[in-house]
Simulated assay, not measured.
Amino acid sequence: MNITQKIAILAGRVKEQMQHVVNEEATKNAMVMPFIQTLGYDVFDPTEVMPEFTADVGLKKGEKVDYAIKHGGELSILVECKPRTTDLANTQFSQLYRYFNCTEAKFAILTNGIEYRFYSDLDDTNRLDTRPFFTFKLNDYNERDVDELKKFAKPVFDVDAILSTANRLKYTNLAKTAFANLVKDPSRDFIKSLAQNFYEGRMTQQVIDDFTPIVRDAMAQHIKEQVSHRLKSALATTSGEEPEQVEINDSDNKTSQAAVEENNDIITTQEEIDAYNIVRAILADIVDPSRIHMRDAKSYCAILLDNNNRKPLCRLHFNSKSVWRIGLFIEGKEQKHDVSALTEIFSHREALSNTATSYIE
């Protein structure tokens, strides 16, 4: 089982156990230790993962950091844990800061069991940065996040390789945050600069105010259209098919145009893609994940074995804004179940496994 599948399983388990994790010790045992183990480190080997790592720092004696991870016998990563309910954005990590400055570790992680903030000394050598260069959230991650996380896995861990891209990653994430804020609340200067490209009148405050909601909506629509287009192309490529094309000719223009509009109404969402990956992770021990395909339609999104409509593993009814449902196939008949969070799909592991096994047999 690869890291992507392990992370998906851990995310599902954390979702189910979250309400029972009420303090720091429970956070360590139920969330942080399994996360470290997912990266390939043996949490029960004190020569590799040292709990309650102690070092005297200046006048501070006997202070401890929760975990110190060694790689190849060298101290590489320090981990400081906070209770699950902690908001890391408003958390001080003075112990981690002091320990990092006096050890040979090149990376430090601050976590509440769900969010993992990765730090290094990119700004000033041997001094821990005040901002993380990478953040991974178990309850909100994508394929690119997993690719970055894989760099910290024991089999491929390479300090120089991580540091070579860490600085770019740090500023890329900051730029993404700035862009998200710009889309949500574009500044006056940005509105003015953009509007000057198509508005020939005098740029007064009233004109800028009038254009603000227009520009905000235009940016949101453009992003949505680009994402939809890329997802359709990616899914078609993954299934081994050419992206669906609709030809238009003069003799049947109205019918063809209707087909185009219907095709454009199909939008594969990130939630559907995440659910598809969860199903692949669940069934990885039964069938090669490459045999599991996704085929989106207007009314539902089908997950199929061998891209065969006669072998449906499940259907995702995610188009409704009020409720999500997953359709499971029991003895050939679809049974729908409400889903309030994607991780609840893991609770249907048995039904999915039985369906996949029945097709294989």
Rank of each mutant, 00 (worst) to 15 (best):
E331W: 04
H293T: 07
V246S: 14
T91L: 07
N2G: 08
T4A: 06
K232L: 03
D209L: 05
L194W: 14
D158P: 04
F35W: 04
V339E: 03
N309F: 09
R117K: 02
T125I: 01
I208E: 13
T355G: 02
Q19V: 13
I330Q: 14
E244K: 12
I282V: 11
I36R: 01
E247M: 08
S76M: 10
A175V: 13
S358I: 04
F53L: 01
P289D: 03
G58N: 11
L194E: 15
L235G: 08
R216E: 08
T177N: 07
H222D: 14
E63V: 12
Y300L: 06
L328T: 07
I9W: 06
A26N: 00
G58Q: 14
D123G: 05
N23G: 00
R98W: 14
T255F: 01
R117Y: 06
N29F: 07
F133M: 01
R216S: 07
L342Y: 05
N249F: 05
T111S: 15
K333Q: 15
K6N: 11
A218F: 11
D265R: 10
R168Q: 15
Q95C: 02
N309H: 10
F211V: 10
L352K: 12
E16N: 10
N142V: 09
L169K: 08
H293K: 07
I286P: 02
R202K: 13
V159E: 15
S164Y: 04
I286S: 07
N277M: 11
D296E: 13
K154Q: 06
A297V: 12
R84G: 00
R325Y: 05
L304F: 07
A234R: 10
R230C: 09
D147L: 10
G58V: 10
N2P: 15
K82D: 10
